[in-house]
Simulated scan of single mutants.
Amino acid sequence: MELVIAKTAGFCMGVDMALHKLDNAVAAPPQDVTIYTLGPIIHNPQVLARYKEQGVLQTDGTKPLKTGDVVVIRAHGIPRRIQLELEAQNVTIVDATCPKVKKAQILIQRQAEQNKHLLLFGERDHPEVQGLVSYAPRHTVFETLEELCAHGIDSAETYFLAAQTTQDRESFNAVREYLIKHVDADMTILDTICMATKDRQEEVRELSHKVQAMVIVGGKNSGNTRRLAQIAQESGIFAVHVETAEELPLEELAAFERIGLTAGASTPSWIIEDVAQTLRMALPDKV
């Protein structure tokens, strides 16, 4: 059997930048202060565990911090209200928001300031989404086209459309076409889906037609990783989403001659390599 590793597997630019900023803070911390991340810096439990071992704590921004404490804003960004509250405290803020998310926040704010209602395609409980909608006083979050249709559109409102940066582009295109056709042909459409997300999704679609099984590696709470797994599963082949090599269903995978391997944008290279090595060692005659 053959193991095919996706070229786009692993860290994206935004995650790499966020961890670089956190690493710099950890490497040279001011005396007698605590380093916090505003929520998990990225959605990967193994990475978070390593930072916890180095003394990095998490805060949700609701409790006052000590003067001089360092707060690193997560890659997903944070709600505008929490940002303002942090700025009012005498703490050191390190903004590690992904530039793509930051751009989406700015674009949404500009449209909202024109008295428009945001239609946001995304996971309503995801921290990035909670941050994005904080820039639009009037907003509706929907997770599927069917949910949007059931919600209904107010003819008195002027809407604009945006998406969580890690959403599935094909699904977003279907939403866009529906709104243009049935609501407003001139509606403002913000293309806020990250190109790195698009590239990963397209490669999974292509790879799924060339292999018999797919292994998707990354945090179970990672939205972009879950979507990669969903795309692979929808292709009709055997697909499994694991966080670590220990979760691999080796007996089931042994039945396949060609296995594809990819990983979410918040999955470090050492976990990807561990999964690949485990497959090679467990299936020496297969992989």
Rank of each mutant, 00 (worst) to 15 (best):
A6M: 05
K7C: 04
T8H: 02
G10Q: 06
M13A: 15
L22A: 07
D23S: 07
A27Q: 09
T34W: 10
I35E: 03
I35K: 02
T37V: 09
P40R: 03
H43S: 08
Q46K: 05
Q46I: 05
K52S: 15
E53H: 15
G55F: 11
V56D: 05
L57P: 15
T59R: 04
D60E: 10
L65P: 01
K66R: 15
K66P: 13
G77D: 02
I78Y: 02
P79Q: 06
R80M: 11
R80N: 11
R81A: 14
I82M: 07
L86A: 07
L86Y: 07
A88K: 13
Q89H: 04
I93S: 02
I93F: 02
A96S: 06
T97F: 08
V101M: 09
V101H: 06
K103L: 14
Q105W: 09
R110M: 08
K116C: 00
L120A: 06
L120H: 03
E123C: 08
R124G: 01
H126Q: 05
P127H: 05
V129D: 01
F142P: 05
L145Q: 00
L145A: 02
L148R: 00
G152T: 02
I153M: 04
A156K: 11
E157V: 08
T158E: 08
Y159P: 00
Q164M: 06
T166P: 00
D168L: 11
E170L: 14
S171P: 11
N173K: 10
A174C: 14
A174E: 13
V175R: 01
R176N: 08
M187F: 00
C194I: 01
E202D: 13
L207Q: 04
H209D: 13
A213Y: 03
A213I: 07
V215F: 10
I216M: 13
V217I: 13
K220Q: 15
G223F: 10
N224G: 08
T225Q: 10
T225H: 10
S235Y: 09
G236K: 10
G236M: 11
I237W: 02
F238S: 12
A239K: 05
V240E: 03
H241Q: 12
T244K: 03
L250R: 08
A255M: 13
R258F: 09
R258N: 10
I259V: 00
S269W: 14
I271T: 06
I272S: 03
P284V: 08
D285H: 11
V287K: 05
